[in-house]
Amino acid sequence: MAALYLLVPVAFLFVGAAVLAFLWAVDDGQFDDTQSPAVRVIMEDDEVDEREE
């Protein structure tokens, strides 16, 4: 059971990292628009093709 004294804090570290990543994503506006980026993926390919021409 002594392992728990180490494992639980390590788990908290992981959670902390996940939470920080989440906060970054929110502040970066990743959740503001969940529709346009999906269509933008298609667009940007076209743009590259055009520049190659």
Partner: peptide, 27 residues
């Protein structure tokens, strides 16, 4: 539609002086 996103976001390439154009489709 998606066509609108594409055409609007072409703006930085087509208009000098425009640095960035991002269109939020749903809003």
């Amino acid at each position: 539609c998606a066509g609108c996103v594409w055409i609007v976001e072409q703006m930085p390439d087509r208009l000098e002086g425009v640095d960035e154009a991002r269109l939020n489709l749903s809003r």
